[in-house]
């Protein structure tokens, strides 16, 4: 048995993981430290033995769902889930509030993905066990943000870095959560998005009020050489009126090896995946491509979250 070191554990007291807005910087740092220890094998293998995690996914998921399952299995716990929403009581008109109350009686924690913004906050008010938000509509996805930060921190200090956000920044919840979290670290945000898919004005205003510099661009080449991190998000076909305008936008925001000429040596390229053509496969073999590493990091980060909430 390997026991985790003391880490920076002080008084992490979040009962649920709903929104990065609920965090203070020390909470983020604590979880990232803990994930780092877990990555080195410094954790008790059966610390969640006998505990059950419910996975309630009302929207499709591959990485988030599988990494929570893996994280729970590595800690000795079990997962239960609704495989198909169509076969559940949801189609009979059951409210989310009732579903959560029922599942609270079956499991020791709940991971929820839901199409409505604020669903996880609602769930936390009806649950008697911890709730972890695995994405609520265009809202928040805090465990993704933590693994994004963890991946950045593997390459550089998080303080005062230049981060580019590219893609669907309006509906892309991972970009919203990450932008907010980076404000804890005095990052400068460089954004570029197809027309109509820019970072929401309210969020930009709020980030600026918190002292974060947000610079908007029209052309990737105007910003890419100033970046330490380029965070690319999927441009979704359904946001465009027709296929032609989608392909036009998707092509103009596609990162190729040529874009990376002359960039900072520190630059790393992240993507929450799945990608839909935003990053040319020719980039995958370059040292700056960290998106598969980022995906793998979902496991230690989610193990840290589960340990923190369930132990």
């Amino acid at each position: 048995m390997q026991q985790g070191g003391g880490g920076s554990k002080t008084d992490f007291d979040l009962k649920h993981i709903i929104s990065i807005r609920d965090f203070e910087r020390r909470d983020v740092d604590h979880l990232l430290d803990r994930a780092g220890e877990i990555d080195k094998g410094l954790y008790e293998k059966n610390s969640l033995e006998g505990r059950i995690l419910a996975l309630l996914f009302f929207e499709p998921s591959t990485r988030t769902r599988m990494s929570f399952e893996t994280a729970m299995a590595r800690l000795g716990g079990k997962t239960i889930s609704v495989d198909c929403v169509e076969a559940s009581s949801i189609v009979k008109g059951e409210t989310l509030a009732d579903t959560i109350r029922v599942v609270s009686g079956y499991a020791d924690a709940i991971v929820l993905r839901h199409p409505k913004e604020g669903a996880a906050r609602l769930a936390s008010e009806f649950a008697t066990v911890p709730v972890i938000n695995a994405g609520d509509g265009a809202g928040q996805h805090p465990s993704q943000t933590l693994l994004d930060l963890y991946t950045i921190r593997q390459s550089m200090d998080l303080d005062r870095i230049d981060v580019g956000l590219l893609g669907d920044l309006r509906y892309g919840r991972t970009a919203h959560s990450l932008a907010y979290a980076l404000s804890f670290y005095d990052a400068t945000l460089h954004t570029i998005a197809p027309g109509g898919l820019e970072l929401p004005a309210n969020l930009v205003r709020e980030l600026r009020e918190m002292g974060t510099e947000v610079i908007e661009y029209q052309d990737i080449m105007d910003m890419i050489r100033d970046l330490d991190v380029l965070y690319v998000t999927r441009i979704q076909r359904e946001r465009f009126p027709d296929s032609a305008s989608y392909y036009s936008a998707a092509l103009s925001y596609r990162i190729t090896p040529e874009h990376l000429d002359g960039t900072r040596s520190s630059l790393i390229l992240l993507h929450p995946l799945p990608r839909a053509g935003e990053i040319d496969p020719g980039v995958d073999s370059l040292p700056c491509a960290r998106y598969f590493e980022q995906s793998r990091n979902g496991v230690p980060v989610r193990m840290a979250i589960l340990q923190e909430l369930m132990e």
């Binding site: 409210t95 989310l96 509030a97 839901h114 199409p115 409505k116 913004e117 604020g118 669903a119 906050r121 609602l122 008010e125 609520d136 509509g137 265009a138």
Partner: peptide
Amino acid sequence: NPGCITNTSEPI
């Protein structure tokens, strides 16, 4: 926000 959970039939 039309996508907000409060604009559904939830008891809140």
